[in-house]
Design a protein around this nucleic acid. Structure first.
Length: 478
RNA sequence: CCGGGUGUAGCGAAGUUGGUAUCGCGCCACAUUUGGGAUGUGGAGACCGCGCGUUCGAGCCGCGCCACUCGGACCA
């Protein structure tokens, strides 16, 4: 019966993945819809996940020397238009401010879809000497893109993100920065979010507007579709030239600096949900979970139970564990189901029977497994368990990725795979745009990335059959 | 943006030939309960997505808009 109730509350994951995702977002109280299409309300539990992402990522950025700044949210149209490829890419999804109070503005302002142009305008003013470099700036903000369709976390019109913008004296140094930041995103996904990633480079078709090279980390969701989870761009000196940013180098020569930008967004939360969630709802990676352990007293009206539970709770807090205790008058069953739905990694149950023997019961959210332990060993066991859960969640996601990635040779094979079971196809690619477009047209997949880990072997392009060496991943993307 | 579907209480739904709206869950109070979404009694809660029109009268009919959703195109 209890099982039936849960299934009733949330659509079964493998019956309708899209509906399951929406149900989880709503029922776990991560987000709510606002009155404007594509603009979402981040509720406390959802925002708390973002705060944890911010806190942990920000620390990594700062280790590299990045500094946080904040730029205006409006971009004068003339500024946006300075770099041709960039404006062409973003113009279709810009929202514009045309009025100031009751006055029509002389020049309309774009609400930032990304801030390269604003940073460049500023860099123009502050970079004059080789001593001014590198400049490594980052900002946490929201951006606006007038998307036609929207889904919680995956595609918002306004979404929260961070955007790093850096300027370097040499191309080599900028390239290193691009790689360094991509690796930070990759490690973050693996070590904090328990999401395995494929690191690689985007094709020219898929790269960021105005960039010379775009690097990406691609994750596989439980439904075998791809989620681009972080990107890092190398711009060369294109923007520097467009914005007339130059400096005097050590040899007293005028030079253009080389630029990068890198970003990750609240889309990561969508990734967490779609990678780890199950039929009971969310399953949160322990290192990002707003509540890591919830203490639930059993038969709490009995003498001493609440006190014993509170004791465990305080022990956890003192040990630095993000803990919560629920002494509300909800039934035990309700509480169990509720915290499973919210994906709290570990639940501690303690009732009269456990107390009599100095025990408590630990339940892990990833497997549902219950273990009775001595209460005095709580902190140590919980710490180990949280690490175990992380490792297990990563392993399960890695298994999903590995088992659904296929080495294929022709576009027909790719189509067959996508139409029947879904997954990533790994093939060779000749590098021609026509072949890339044909894969979309014929097989229904887009290129995800050319992985850094190249095999070095020779094979045939799945479309034109030409001999080539480049390995590339294809998939259906969010 | 194109095509299909849907908007009635916090959620899920019913609503007859047009007559100001019903049910379940949830919510609140009290009591009894509590080792996997408890039970009883009582109570509150809806400008029927928004606007305009037709009509003596619209949840229901017409037009427009907004939002959600599923495909497609586009995009992080």
């Amino acid at each position: 019966m209890a099982q039936d109730k849960k299934v009733e509350a949330i659509t079964a994951r493998d019956v309708d993945f899209a509906q399951w995702f929406t149900d989880v977002c709503k029922k776990a109280e991560l987000v709510d819809y606002s009155s404007i299409k594509g603009m979402f309300i981040y509720r406390p539990y959802g925002y708390a996940i973002w705060e944890n992402i911010q806190r942990l990522m920000d620390a990594e950025f700062k280790k590299t020397g990045a500094e946080n700044v904040y730029m205006p949210m409006l971009i004068p149209e003339s500024l946006l238009q300075k770099e041709k490829d960039h404006v062409e890419g973003f113009a279709p999804e810009c929202a514009w401010v045309t009025m100031g109070g009751s006055e029509k503005l002389e020049e309309r302002y774009c609400i930032r879809p990304t801030s390269e142009t604003l940073f460049c305008d500023h860099f123009h003013d502050i970079i004059h000497s080789w001593r001014d470099l590198p400049k490594m700036y980052n900002q946490w903000c929201s951006v606006l893109r007038w998307e036609k369709t929207s889904r919680p976390f995956l595609r918002h019109r306004e979404f929260l993100w961070q955007e790093g913008h850096t300027m370097h004296a040499t191309a080599e140094e900028a390239r290193e920065e691009t790689q360094r930041m991509l690796e930070i995103y990759a490690k973050f996904c693996e070590d904090v979010l328990a999401m395995p990633v494929i690191r690689g480079r985007k094709t020219d078709k898929e790269k960021f507007n105005g960039a010379e090279e775009t690097y990406t980390i691609e994750c596989m969701m439980h439904d075998k579709k791809a989620l681009q989870s972080g990107t890092s761009h190398y711009f060369g000196d294109g923007f520097a030239k467009a914005f007339d940013i130059h400096f005097t180098d050590k040899n007293n020569q005028q030079a253009y600096p080389h630029q990068t930008s890198w970003g990750a967004s609240t889309r990561l939360i969508g990734g967490i949900i779609m990678t780890h969630g199950d039929d009971d709802g969310l399953v949160l990676p322990p290192r990002i979970a707003p509540v890591q352990v919830v203490v639930v007293p059993v038969a709490q009206q009995k003498e001493g139970v609440v006190e014993a539970a509170t004791g465990l709770y305080n022990t956890l807090l003192e040990a630095g564990v993000r803990a919560k205790i629920d002494t509300s008058d909800r039934s035990l069953g309700w509480k169990c189901a509720e915290y499973e739905m919210r994906g709290v990694p570990v639940r501690v149950e303690i009732g009269p029977r456990d107390m009599a023997e100095g025990n408590c019961c630990l339940v892990r959210s990833d497997t549902g497994e219950k273990t009775v332990i001595k209460s005095v060993e709580l902190t140590e066991t919980v710490r180990r368990l949280l690490d175990d859960i992380h490792a297990n969640m990563y392993a399960m996601a890695k298994k999903n990725l590995d088992e659904n990635t296929f080495d294929l040779n022709t576009w027909e094979e790719v189509k067959e795979m996508i139409d029947t079971k879904g997954g990533f196809a790994k093939t060779k690619w000749c590098g021609a745009l026509e072949c890339e477009l044909a894969m979309k047209e014929k097989a229904g997949v887009s290129s995800r990335c050319m992985p850094f880990a190249q095999s070095g072997t020779t094979g045939k392009c799945p479309v034109c059959g030409k001999e080539c060496t480049t390995d590339i991943y294809w998939g259906v993307a969010y």
